[in-house]
Write a protein that binds this DNA or RNA. Sequence first.
DNA 1: TATGGACCCTGTAGCAACTACAGGGTCAAG
DNA 2: CTTGACCCTGTAGTTGCTACAGGGTCCATA
Lengths: 133, 133
Amino acid sequence: MTGDFLAIGELGRRTDTKVETIRYYERIGLLAAPGRTAGNYRAYGSEHLNRLSFIRRSRDLGFSLDHVRALLGLADQRNRSCDAVDAIAKEHRAEVDRKIADLHALRRELDNMIDQCRCGTVADCRIIDALSP
Amino acid sequence: MTGDFLAIGELGRRTDTKVETIRYYERIGLLAAPGRTAGNYRAYGSEHLNRLSFIRRSRDLGFSLDHVRALLGLADQRNRSCDAVDAIAKEHRAEVDRKIADLHALRRELDNMIDQCRCGTVADCRIIDALSP
DNA sequence: TATGGACCCTGTAGCAACTACAGGGTCAAG
DNA sequence: CTTGACCCTGTAGTTGCTACAGGGTCCATA
């Protein structure tokens, strides 16, 4: 695997992606199947590197694979308005907000519970109490 | 299904749990298998109702099934110190804190990205830019 | 007594988004 | 010519359910 092409392991190192994950992305049609070498190794070019970097970055930002798929599709239609991109990002942000709110509420409840524990026996444990019906 | 016993559907209604979920909990050994009626229906008693309520409450607080399993085990040893219970709760709280922090960081990044979008064409979309390598 | 509908049974497959093998083939260095 | 790092396919596991398919049971009503 010399010259312009990358083996899957090298692509993985450059994008901080596990080899199995790359193959998985290919299987579900997120990353185009690359050409093969004589020995049937996948041979990736720079377009794959770019594409996978985009995917990884989107995933790091918490977008679902469905959202990533949509973003990739939109990114290719250079002349379109980017409203749809904006909409996906905002929808995602709203969901992140919901999750944060949920976790804050959860945290408050956990705090209440833990604060009341006097660490005696289980029989008079306030945490167990709080969980019991 | 009269008297002291509950059919699975009734147990589900009382604990706000889907029937399939109850059977799932039984399958993975989280909820003890109840007796059966002549017609092979599961017949739950009040101990199952209490147990499942405990499970649901723990799940609502975000404990993993493994944690719930541990908490159930501890809840039964009434004479033990409740340190282990406390430890599980605090570990869980720490994880919730981590998740909150992660989501806050994520939210900031999303905000930056979305704020820069001038909503022109995809070709000069800042969101796509931000995702691209 | 028959029948309809609500309920129950088991078993299996599906979801997200990977991850981890098993059991093999390829390639380059020493 | 062998060793070890890499690659291949295919399948099964993870978490916590959820959704069938294809049947059996129970009870009220006609």
